[in-house]
């Protein structure tokens, strides 16, 4: 009688354990993050058309000395998206001076646009690139050019507006 009881208990425990194992299951995923340095962008140089004449369009190429330049720092070799917010006009009081035909390029090694500057194909879209690695620091220089088209009766004066560069890690 006593032996029978022991066997019964052992059997019952075995069945119970088997059932519990089958009724519990786990799944796994990872949590992931990539830590990056903050991106800083400073205005390296204004895009400066200088003196333009009524009725005479003027173009500053992105490779010209007078091109606009942004100086950016971030995490070396990190992927980054390049986007611009570009004005359609330069403004002088109530007067507008049309600006368009934007061009651009970026350099990951040095603040020069004469050579080694990669053309930005679509200035109104998103361009994917990476920060360069300059002595362990992530660097990126972005240059912009454009064309202003003053009318024959364009009001004389000084016209300005803002070009905004946005860099986003991805």
């Amino acid at each position: 009688m006593r032996f029978f009881t022991k066997v019964s208990v052992a059997t019952a425990i075995g069945l119970s354990l088997a059932g519990a194992l089958e009724a519990q299951t786990s799944g796994t995923i990872n949590a992931r993050a990539v830590v990056r340095q903050p991106i800083t962008i400073t205005a390296g140089q204004d895009l400066d058309f200088g003196i333009v004449l009524q009725g005479s369009p003027r173009t500053i190429a992105e490779t010209a000395a007078a091109a606009g330049r942004f100086d950016a720092t971030g995490t070396a070799n990190a992927n980054v998206n390049v986007n611009f917010t570009l004005p359609a006009n330069l403004v002088s009081g109530a007067n507008n001076l049309p600006i368009g035909s934007w061009t651009g390029c970026y350099n990951q090694a040095a603040a020069v646009n004469a050579s080694g500057c990669t053309t930005i194909a679509n200035m109104s879209g998103t361009t994917a690139t990476t920060f360069g690695n300059v002595a362990g620091n992530g660097r990126l220089w972005v240059f912009v050019g454009a064309t202003v088209s003053p009318a024959a009766a364009q009001a004389v004066g000084t016209y300005t507006n803002t070009v905004t560069l946005t860099l986003t890690y991805f």
């Binding site: 949590a31 992931r32 993050a33 990539v34 830590v35 990056r36 903050p38 991805f170």
Partner: peptide, 9 residues
């Protein structure tokens, strides 16, 4: 995965 992507210091 739970992917925070790039996060800034």
């Amino acid at each position: 995965d739970l992917d925070f992507g790039p996060v800034i210091q």
